[in-house]
Design a binder for these strands. Sequence first.
DNA 1: AATCCTATCTTGCCATTGACAAGATGCCGC
DNA 2: GCGGCATCTTGTCAATGGCAAGATAGGATT
Lengths: 186, 186
Amino acid sequence: MTETRAYHHGDLRRALLAAALDAIEEVGPAALSLRDLARRAGVSHAAPAHHFGDKAGLLTALATQGFDLLAQTLASAGDDLLAAGVAYVDFAVRHRAHFEVMFRPELYRAGDAELVTARERAGAALRSGVATLPTSGAPVDTDRDALAAWSIAHGFATLWLAGALPNRVGGNPRKAAQEVLRRLTR
Amino acid sequence: MTETRAYHHGDLRRALLAAALDAIEEVGPAALSLRDLARRAGVSHAAPAHHFGDKAGLLTALATQGFDLLAQTLASAGDDLLAAGVAYVDFAVRHRAHFEVMFRPELYRAGDAELVTARERAGAALRSGVATLPTSGAPVDTDRDALAAWSIAHGFATLWLAGALPNRVGGNPRKAAQEVLRRLTR
DNA sequence: AATCCTATCTTGCCATTGACAAGATGCCGC
DNA sequence: GCGGCATCTTGTCAATGGCAAGATAGGATT
């Protein structure tokens, strides 16, 4: 939203990030071209460098944005583990570009301060979603349980995005994810 | 093994694939440079093109090799689901370069004939490992169970490779994977 | 109002890369 | 010995990332 019409002097930074999301959905994060972004935004080929330094800088900004969005998404999904898992998969599918960058740290500056805090925020949201696991009998190892939940949601999302899943899984990721995630929670 | 010393006229193809594995472990599959591979192999910058056509061709060969290796690995892991899961994660860690390419189909020709058969072979090995799920009571949906098992193993492997796991998980992927995968099988 | 100042953006440049074309080299069968 | 073919080299071009130097403009200071 707020598609402000001013690049030439205005919010170029925002426009470039938006263009990057489009481009990544089309060709993937690796094939991203700064010059292509500049063309999409209608500015010169060196304009992006001023806002992000280099390509890694731009992807760092994108990853930070992504972790913030994920934290927000998980928080509003509530405390139910199954719902949180579905929200995680849904996030990956709906914000594919963000998600693909976030988990490819070799493409950005993983030590960047803002990024680190955003990632920790997302991590906290993730753990709080798992804290409500049904403690059915056996001694619980929350860390391992959290990791298992994260793994199954992340794995399903990744396989979905990679197009690795058989056609039979169908076109509704939320439904399919729910059926899969249920295997863990029961 | 069989580090034959003949490139200039010899098994350049094999040497290039080996060099590619090294390079990918160093800089990731996206930053792979054909010219760098040529330098590593001691040949001219255009030599790789003859064997693989282009970069996608080389990565297709690598992915095919990877799926074959995975099929072989899963087959020799036996019929136990937990063992198969651990073998899957172990494969990802030990053959990181192969694994990273295999699940990034935008980098290679996913429709290539040899690749398709290799991938199907790996898929079959995967499913046969899941077929021995403990049918404890409830009506079993094998497809969904298989998908859940694949998801949790794949997710753990992916998170491990991305360096996303907390330090506490430790340096032994097999052990950590086993503890996580157990959450699903019990 | 004139001036400086700084953020923003442009132009120009260079090394690297992927891909292609054309030519050289050497092996193998006849 | 000779032709043919696979293999490899040299040369070239467009695209890209990144750097340097310069242009432009809006705001603050005086």
